[in-house]
Design a binder for these strands. Structure first.
Length: 909
RNA sequence: GCGCGCUUAGCUCAGUGGUAGAGCACAUCCUUCACACGGAUGGGGUCGCAGGUUCGAACCCUGCAGCGCGCACCA
C-alpha cells in the first residue's frame, strides 16, 4: 500500500542519506494520500464499536482558510484521531456553507468590476447560474486546504447547505414551523443594510462605538410664536420624517407643553407634543423628536400613539423627500450635514456637541445599518424551554462553562428572528401568492397559517399543482436558517431512516468559536429538539479567538492575518498544528505569533533527529529487556512515559489541549532527549557491548513507539512517517489506526525497585546540573578533560560513574571518601555527595571563599525560613501532618547542606 | 447601565492553599560522530492595587483601578 521502496519512507536507508533536518512537505502529502487510499477516515454506520461523531462548522464555500479555521479544525482532528485510538467508530462530517450574503456579494462585485453589470441586468436565473459556477470553481479550495492540514474527515459524506437533499430539509422545516404558526410575515422595523439591500437579523448587527455629533435644535410652538421646545438628536437628516415631539409625562419642565403643537421647519408641518415613559428626562434636553420610520424606539412610540409613519429614505440610504428639494436624493451622511446647515440658516440650531454613541453596523460593507420598516418573514423560536433546559441541566456541556450563562441570558430574551433576506443566493422561501390577489397580499399587514388555510397563499415543499396561478415569494432565507439543521440534516435525507443518523446522532462534540454561540449553537439546539426530539451534541468546546500580538482581531484589511498555507509551506502542517495547540488557552483570546509555529517545526525536527540517532543502530523493533536488566535511566524514562499517558488521558477528559501539547513537548525534549538519550548514549557507541546496546534499543523502541502514538493526534504526519521507518507498526498498517495500549510499560512490576531507580536517575540528573553549573562558573563549561572528585557518596554511584562523566563532560571521576581538597578547590554540595573540581592553575582561594560564602548565606536564609515555620506552634498544630513532615525533611536537607558547605569553607582557611 | 473575562519575567502565557514556572527574547560558552530548527549555563518577577479569611494566599472573599468582550430602544 505504501511506497516502501523509495522516497522518504524507505527502510534501512543509510544514515548519511537522511537529511539532517526534517522536511515535512513531501511526507505530509504522501501520508494524507495514503490515509485516504486506506479508507482510514471513513465512518462505518454498521460498526459495532461505540460511536464518536463531530460535525464540522461548515466554512463558507468560497472562503479561504484562515487561522481561526486552522485552530478549529486542528482541535476537531485531534479529538477525532484520539477517539479512533480509543477504539471508537469515528465520524467527522465535513462540508461547506453557501453563505448567502457573502457569496452573493462576491459574485456581484466580480460582475460589476469585470463586466459593469448588476445582478438585475442578468436576471435571477442567469445570476444564480453565475453563483453556482463560482461555487463550483472555488468550492474546493477550502476543502483542499483542510486536507493539507491533515483533517481526517469522512470525505465520502461531505455536504453542502444547498445540496438538493439539504434544501429539502430547509424547506420542510420552514413549512412545518409555518404550519405550527411559528413563522409569519409582517411589516416590522428591521435592520436594513443599505449596501446589500437586505434585511438582517439582530445578531448580524455589530454595535460599534462611534464618535458622532449631538445636534441641539428647537421647534417653535404653534400657539406661542417665539416660544420654543429644545430637543437634541444625532440624526437631523431624518427631521422630515418627524411626526411628534415626545417628553416624559413626569417631567415638570414640559408638563404644560403636552398636547400642544410645534412647527417642523422642513417640510413645514405642525406636529404634536406627546408624553411617553420611554423618554429619559436626564438625557439631552429631555425632549425627543419622533421619527417612526427611522428609529426602532420611535417606531414603538409611534405605534403606542398611532402616529403616522413618514419614510424619507430609499433602500440604499439616500434621502427621499421631494417636498424638501435641498435634501432630496442626497446620501444620508451628506444630508446630515446639510440638514444641520439648513437648521442653522433658520436660526433653529442651538449647538453641536461631540458625542460618542453606539451605532449598529452591517457585517457587509462596514456601513451603519438603517432601521427600516419593511415586509419580512419572522420566526418565533421553537423548543425554547427544552433547549434552555438542556444546557442548564448539564445534558449539554459548554467548555468553558461560563458561556452557559451567556447562552441562558440570550435564551431568556429571545426576539423573533427575521429570516427573510432580499437576496437571490440561498433557499428561496417556499411560499406562493395567488396571482389574482398579489397586490393585496403584498401589502397585507400580516400573513400566517390562516392565509394558507384560506387558500390565499400556499406554503409547501413543492410548487402548487396549478403553478401558473401562483407567484413565488422572491426572498431567500437567512443562511443560518439552513445551518441550524446541520447536525442532523447532513446525516439523513428528509424522511429517510438513515443508519448514519441512527449511529452518529446525537453527535459527541462540537468545536466552534464563541462568536457564533447565538448565530449557530443555540439555534442548532432548538432545531434538534424541535425536529429530532433530541440534543444535537453532548459537549460544546468554544475555541479561543485568534488575535495578533497587539490584540487586534485578525482581518484581511489590517493585513495581520497570516496565510495558513504559507505557514504550512514554511513549517509543515504538523508544525502549525502543534505550535497553535501549544499556545491555545482554554477559552479566552489567543495572541498569535509566528514564532510559535516555528517552535512546532523545531519540535518535529527534534523528534525526527531523536529517531535518526536510533536509526544509526539499525532499525527494527527491539524487544523490551527483562526488568532485572533495566538500568535506572531505562526505568526512569519508562515511568515518565507511563505518567505522560495518564496525564494526557486526564487532560483529554477535560479538553485541555494546550496542556496536552505542553506535556508532549516536555516529555520528548526534556525527559527523553536531554536526559534519557544523553544518559544512555554510551550504550549506542561502538565500544558498548551487544547486551548494553540491545537493552537500550529495546527501551528506546518501547518508549518511542508509544510516544509517537500519543503524539499522533497532534502531529499525525511525522509520527506516521517515523513509525513506518522505525517499523513500529505492522507492515501495511497505519499508526493512526492502532488502538492505545491498555497496559502501562511498568505495570505490575517491582514498585520498590522502580522507586529506587527513579530516585537514582533523578539524583544523577540533578547532580549533573549542579556540576555543569560549577564548571560554567569556573569557565570550563565546555572542557571535557576535567577531573572530578566526589566524597560522601552513596554506594550505587560507582556503577553510574561513566554516565555522570558523560553527562557533565568529565574525563575522570574519582570516588574518595577521604579526599582532602587543595585549598580553593571549587566544590558543590549535590544529592550524590560533595563534588570537587580540582583545577590546576585556576585555583583562586579568595574567589572560591566568596562563592561558598554566598551559597552559605543563601542556604542559611532557606534554613531560617524553614526553622521559622517549624518554630511556629500554630503551623505545627494546624497544618496537615504531611506538610509538616515535608517541612521537617526540608529543614534537615538545609542543615546537611549547610554543614557540608561550612566544612568546605573551613578547609579553605 | 447590566453581565462575563483578563491583569504573573522584556513578550506570549501555564500555574484550584504548602520553597514562583514554561517557551521565546536576552547574556556567556560550545560547530563534541541525532539535532545550530541544536547543546550547556546564567540574569530577570514585592504574581494590578488595598483590605480580609487562613498556621500559610498568585490561588479563596470584599472593594478599587486598568484592559477586553458580550448584552441593552438613552435620542
Amino acid at each position: 500500500m505504501l511506497d516502501k521502496g523509495g522516497g522518504l519512507g524507505q527502510r534501512c536507508r543509510p544514515m548519511s542519506e537522511l537529511p539532517k533536518a526534517y522536511e515535512p512537505q513531501a511526507v505530509e502529502a504522501k501520508w494524507y494520500a495514503a490515509w485516504v487510499d486506506g479508507n482510514c477516515f471513513h465512518a462505518d454506520a454498521a460498526s459495532t464499536r461505540d460511536a464518536y461523531s463531530i460535525v464540522i462548522p461548515p466554512p463558507n464555500v468560497t472562503g479561504i482558510l484562515h487561522l481561526g479555521h486552522v485552530l478549529n479544525a486542528a482541535l476537531q482532528d485531534i479529538l477525532a484521531r484520539r477517539a479512533r485510538q480509543n477504539g471508537k467508530e469515528v465520524l467527522w462530517l465535513p462540508g461547506t456553507d453557501h453563505a448567502g450574503i457573502a457569496t452573493q456579494a462576491k459574485v456581484e462585485r466580480g460582475l460589476r468590476e469585470q463586466e459593469g453589470l448588476t445582478r438585475h441586468d442578468l436576471g435571477r436565473e442567469a445570476f444564480l447560474q453565475r453563483v453556482w459556477d463560482f461555487k463550483n470553481k472555488h468550492g474546493d479550495i477550502i476543502i483542499n486546504q483542510l486536507k493539507r492540514l491533515g483533517c481526517s474527515c469522512d470525505w465520502d459524506r461531505e455536504r453542502f447547505t444547498m445540496d438538493a437533499g439539504y434544501t429539502r430539509w430547509v424547506h420542510h422545516v420552514f413549512v412545518e414551523l409555518f404550519k405550527k404558526g411559528l413563522i409569519y410575515r409582517g411589516k416590522r422595523m428591521v435592520n436594513w443594510c443599505p449596501i446589500s439591500l437586505t434585511a438582517l437579523s439582530d445578531e448580524e448587527v455589530i454595535m460599534t462605538a462611534q464618535r458622532s455629533k449631538l445636534y441641539f435644535m428647537k421647534y417653535e410652538c404653534v400657539d406661542a410664536p417665539g416660544e420654543f421646545v429644545e430637543i437634541s438628536t444625532t440624526r437631523p437628516e431624518t427631521l422630515m420624517g418627524d411626526v411628534a415631539i415626545a417628553v416624559n409625562p413626569n417631567d415638570p419642565r414640559y408638563a404644560q407643553l403636552i398636547g400642544r403643537r410645534v412647527r417642523r421647519p422642513f417640510p413645514a408641518a405642525e406636529i404634536p407634543i406627546i408624553a411617553d415613559d420611554h423618554v429619559d428626562m436626564e438625557f439631552g434636553t429631555g425632549a425627543l423628536k419622533i421619527t417612526p420610520a427611522h428609529d426602532k424606539a420611535d417606531f414603538e412610540i409611534g405605534q403606542r400613539h398611532q402616529l403616522e409613519i413618514i419614510d424619507v429614505m430609499t433602500p440604499d440610504g439616500r434621502i427621499h423627500c421631494p417636498d424638501c428639494p435641498e435634501l432630496h436624493g442626497l446620501d444620508r451622511f451628506v444630508a446630515r450635514k446639510k440638514a444641520a446647515v439648513m437648521l442653522e440658516e433658520r436660526g433653529l440650531l442651538l449647538k453641536v456637541e461631540e458625542y460618542e454613541n453606539n451605532v449598529g453596523f452591517s457585517e457587509r460593507g462596514n456601513v451603519p445599518i438603517e432601521p427600516r420598516i419593511s415586509m419580512q418573514w419572522f420566526l418565533k423560536y421553537p423548543s425554547v424551554d427544552e433547549a434552555a433546559q438542556a444546557v442548564a441541566s448539564g445534558k449539554i456541556q459548554f467548555r468553558p462553562k461560563r458561556w452557559e450563562k451567556t447562552y441562558a441570558h440570550w435564551m431568556e430574551n429571545l426576539q423573533d428572528w427575521c429570516i427573510s433576506r432580499q437576496l437571490w443566493w440561498g433557499h428561496q422561501i417556499p411560499v406562493w401568492y395567488r396571482k389574482d390577489l398579489l397586490d393585496e397580499l403584498k401589502n397585507a399587514e400580516s400573513l400566517d397559517t390562516a392565509d394558507h388555510r384560506d387558500g390565499r397563499i400556499y406554503v409547501g415543499l413543492d410548487a402548487p399543482a396549478d403553478a401558473e396561478q401562483w407567484v413565488r415569494d422572491e426572498d431567500v432565507m437567512d443562511t443560518w436558517f439552513s445551518s441550524w439543521l446541520w447536525p442532523f440534516s447532513t446525516m439523513a435525507d428528509l424522511g429517510e431512516s438513515s443508519p448514519c443518523l441512527k449511529k452518529f446522532f446525537p453527535t459527541t462534540d462540537l468545536v466552534t468559536g464563541p462568536d457564533i454561540l447565538f448565530f449557530w449553537v443555540a439555534r442548532m439546539i432548538m432545531a434538534s429538539y424541535e425536529f429530532m426530539d433530541d440534543l444535537p451534541f453532548q459537549n460544546v468546546y468554544f475555541t479561543a479567538i485568534i488575535r495578533d500580538l497587539k490584540g487586534r482581531k485578525m482581518s484581511k484589511s489590517l493585513g495581520n492575518s497570516p496565510d495558513p498555507i504559507d505557514l504550512m509551506e514554511k513549517y509543515g502542517a504538523d508544525g502549525l498544528r502543534f505550535g497553535l495547540m501549544r499556545i491555545a488557552p482554554v477559552g479566552s483570546d489567543l495572541r498569535f505569533d509566528e514564532s510559535s509555529v516555528e517552535e512546532g517545526r523545531n519540535f518535529a525536527n527534534k523528534l525526527y533527529n531523536a529517531c535518526r540517532l536510533r536509526q544509526m543502530s539499525g532499525i527494527g523493533m527491539q524487544p523490551l529487556p527483562a526488568f532485572e536488566l533495566l538500568r535506572p535511566y531505562h526505568i526512569d524514562v519508562m515511568a515518565k512515559l507511563d505518567d505522560l499517558s495518564a496525564d494526557l488521558a486526564a487532560s483529554y477528559a477535560e479538553y485541555r489541549f494546550g496542556e496536552i501539547a505542553q506535556r508532549l513537548y516536555e516529555f520528548l525534549w526534556n525527559d527523553f532527549c536531554d536526559k534519557f538519550l544523553e544518559a544512555v548514549k554510551l550504550d549506542l557507541r561502538d565500544s558498548a557491548s551487544e547486551q548494553q546496546r540491545s537493552n537500550t534499543l529495546g527501551v528506546f523502541d518501547a518508549v518511542m513507539s508509544r510516544y509517537l502514538q500519543l503524539l499522533s493526534p497532534y502531529m499525525p504526519h511525522v509520527t506516521e512517517e517515523l513509525s513506518l521507518r522505525m517499523e513500529y507498526v505492522p507492515s501495511g498498517a497505519f499508526l493512526m489506526q492502532q488502538p492505545l495500549p491498555s497496559r502501562n510499560l511498568l505495570e505490575n512490576l517491582d514498585e520498590v525497585a522502580i522507586k529506587r531507580d527513579r530516585a537514582i536517575a533523578a539524583s544523577i540528573y540533578e547532580s549533573a546540573g549542579r556540576i555543569r553549573n560549577l564548571k560554567a562558573e569556573y569557565k570550563v563549561g565546555s572542557r571535557k578533560d576535567v577531573k572530578l572528585v566526589i566524597k560522601g557518596f552513596s554506594p550505587w554511584l560507582e556503577e553510574q560513574k561513566p554516565v555522570l562523566a558523560l553527562l557533565v563532560g568529565a574525563a575522570e571521576i574519582l570516588l574518595d571518601h577521604s579526599y582532602q581538597s587543595p585549598k580553593g578547590t571549587p566544590a558543590a554540595v549535590t544529592s550524590i555527595g560533595e563534588v570537587y573540581l580540582p583545577l590546576d592553575g585556576l585555583i583562586d582561594v579568595d574567589a572560591e571563599r566568596t562563592r561558598l560564602t554566598k551559597e552559605i548565606q543563601i542556604t542559611r536564609g532557606e534554613l531560617a525560613k524553614s526553622e521559622g515555620k517549624l518554630g511556629n506552634a500554630s503551623f505545627v498544630d494546624r497544618a496537615p501532618p504531611e506538610i509538616v513532615v515535608q517541612e521537617k525533611s526540608r529543614l534537615q536537607e538545609w542543615r546537611d547542606k549547610l554543614a557540608q558547605l561550612e566544612e568546605m569553607l573551613a578547609a579553605l582557611a
